[in-house]
Structure formats: C-alpha cells, structure tokens
Design a protein around this nucleic acid. Structure first.
Lengths: 191, 191
DNA sequence: GGATATCTACCGACTAGTTGGTCGGTCGTC
DNA sequence: GACGACCGACCAACTAGTCGGTAGATATCC
C-alpha cells in the first residue's frame, strides 16, 4: 500500500483541490504534474469521487492526528485554540495549502458526489467536536471565558476561521488580514 | 435592453452559480432551464466569463441598492447590521439563494477568469466599506460598541457571516445554525 | 404606401478540445 | 505463473464557442 506514485497522486490532487475545488481539476491535470498516464490514476483511484474521498479521508486523519498531538502535548486550552488558528495563519503565510479543503468543498457541496459530500460533513463534525472538547475543558479549568456553550463557541470559531480564509484569499493570500480577523475572536475566548 | 430572455438567462446563471459555483455549470444547463438554444446565450453573453461578470455586476448593484435603502430608511446602526445578517438568515430559511455568490466564487478564486475574479474582489471591497461605514457611524452615535476599529469589525462580521453560511450549507441548509453562529457576534457589537 | 435595407433575437448544426472512464497489453517482482 | 504497477489507444459524452441562416420588427428611401 501507499506506493510512491499513489502518494504523489494524492498530494497533487489535494493541491489542485485546494486551489481549484472539486469541479475544476481533472485527471489530465494530475497526469501532467505527476508524470504518469491517466490510466494509472484510474488504476489507483477508479473514479474521480474515489480520489476525492481518499484525499479528504487522509486530510481528516491528519487533522485528527494534529488535534490529538495538541491534546497530548499542550495542556492549556487557550494555547490549543491559538495553535489551531495559528496553524492556518502559517499555511496562508507560506502559501503552502492556504485553504481548508473541507471549507472549499463545503461551498461546492450541492454539486459534489454524495460520498465526497459525506466526507466533508464528517470532517466538520469531527472538527467541531474536537474544538468543542478543548473549549469545554478550558471553561471548566478557567482558562477560557465564554458567554456561549462550548459547541456554539467552537462553531463560531470555525466559521470565523473559514470566513477569514476566504477574506485572505480575496486579498491575494494576505496572512495579516487573516490574523486581524481571527485574533479578536480568539482573544475573546482566551480572555 | 434587458429583454425577457436576457434576464432569464441571468437569473438561471445566478441560481446555478449559487448552488454549483463557476466551474460546474454549463451553457447546456442554462439552455435546458430557460428553453433557448445555446447559441442564444452566446448571443447575449459572448463568453462564459462575460455571463459570470454580468451576474456579479447585477448582484453588486442589488447589494448596493439594498445597502443604500437601509441607510436611507433605517437610522440606527445596530438595526442596519441586524438587517444585513438577518437578510441571509431569511435567504437560507427560504432556500431562496442560500449563499452569497461572491463568497462562493471567492473560494474558487484561483481558478476564475481574471475579469470574474476582479468583480468578486470589488464586491468584497464595497461590502466591507458599506458595513464599516455603518459601524463607524454607530460607534460615534453610541449605538454600537467595539474594541476594534470599524473596518476590522466589518471584516469580522462578514467573515463570520460567510463562515456561518458554509456551516449552514454543510448542515443541509440549517438557518437556525446560521443564526446561532452569527447572533453572538452581532450582539457583541450592538451591545 | 410600398419596396428595400438594417437590426435584433434567435436557432440548428457544427467544431475542436476536454472530460471521466475503459480496454488490452507490457513489464518487473515475488 | 500470478500479481500489482503501469501505459497507449481508445470511447462516448460533454465543454465553450462558431457559423450561416431565419423571422420579425424598425427604419429608410423613392
């Protein structure tokens, strides 16, 4: 499993989805970048939906791993949230993967194959649950303050982060703008 | 100018963009809905980019008109902001046009023709400027309170609204969820 | 007023290129 | 000799866009 070509196809597909979304990337695009025939991509991922599902599944795993690592190594809830928000700031700054693929695919949701849509929804649920867990813990330990309950706070935070990504993209990848939008929301939680 | 067919093409294109984005709608789709030949669409809008530009330009005008009407008839800044946020809540609830096309196109920005991208950016600038104007006025009149300056507050509000739209879309068009996310942010401004 | 020219809206038929996907087959490895 | 990785050639369906032409208004000239 996980041959070199397999991984490179996944990497390329992910990069293309980040910049163009699901509907605007093709097997031919990946073929050109990776340097393999189109048939090879179909060999590893029978259909386009399979490929997209694999990309999001890996992305979800990476997110969970990152969140798990944060939970294990960073005891303070305020620092955890700052880590989440700061992660994306760094991504935008590095022009690495300057957008959450799940947020992008969420916008395209009505035109997505159902398996892909299900993965996107699952990511949102997981992400909210994780952050809500952090916030809940932080509120109990007095590291955070909020007028709303943990889940609602998590949803507000995620929505702000996604909206800020959008704003940064419109502004040509402006990481400062992203920070300007997200910081106050974060600060209101971390007090 | 503005024949019936012309307007119906625009309407249909707008509806398709709202649900599918720029890359996932075709002249054939519009042709089928409006009941005219594809060539007719090309007659009114030579290229796909022209069509999209026309859609956003009309959308921008409608936004400006709405904002202008609000400025004229609603003197209180807090009510104006509530009107903006509430407008989208109603759109989601009615499943009318449950997404801001500019926000959707912003996600696809890197894959958009430059003329279309320019329109999207222009809409964001206008929207922020309008809301910042409302907020600035409200702060001076003491109808609003904010730790940040007006423009930053406007950007936070817009980002939250766009993020909440995304969340609502993922949740299957959940207007309550949209309201849950946006209300606290709004309330923090309106005090 | 009647013939003629112009214009706009519209269409069927077409094109070149791209889309996701299939097929039979080759190569190296276990 | 079976198997996984890979490929060239192909396919039907679809993409945006073009072309020549028609029908019906409106204007122009005699």
């Amino acid at each position: 499993m996980g041959s070199d070509t397999y991984t490179r196809i996944l990497d390329t597909a992910q990069a293309l989805i980040v910049t163009r979304g699901y509907n605007a990337f093709s097997y031919a695009d990946i073929s050109a970048v990776v340097g393999v025939g189109k048939a090879t991509i179909h060999h590893h991922f029978p259909g386009k939906a399979d490929l997209a599902v694999a990309v999001i599944a890996r992305y979800r795993q990476a997110t969970e791993d990152g969140m798990g690592a944060m939970a294990a190594h960073e005891p303070r809830a305020d620092k955890r949230l700052a880590g989440y928000v700061g992660f994306w700031e760094q991504c935008i700054r590095d022009n690495d993967a300057p957008f959450c693929i799940a947020a992008l695919l969420a916008a395209e949701l009505p035109s997505l194959p159902s398996e892909v849509a299900a993965q996107v929804k699952a990511h949102f649920d997981e992400l909210i649950a994780r952050l809500a867990g952090f916030i809940d813990e932080g509120l109990k330990k007095g590291e955070l303050t909020s007028a709303e309950d943990a889940e609602r706070s998590a949803r507000i935070l995620v929505a702000t982060v996604h909206g800020a990504m959008l704003a940064a993209r419109v502004a040509g990848g402006d990481a400062e703008l992203y920070a300007n939008i997200t910081q106050p929301v974060l600060q209101r939680l971390t007090g």
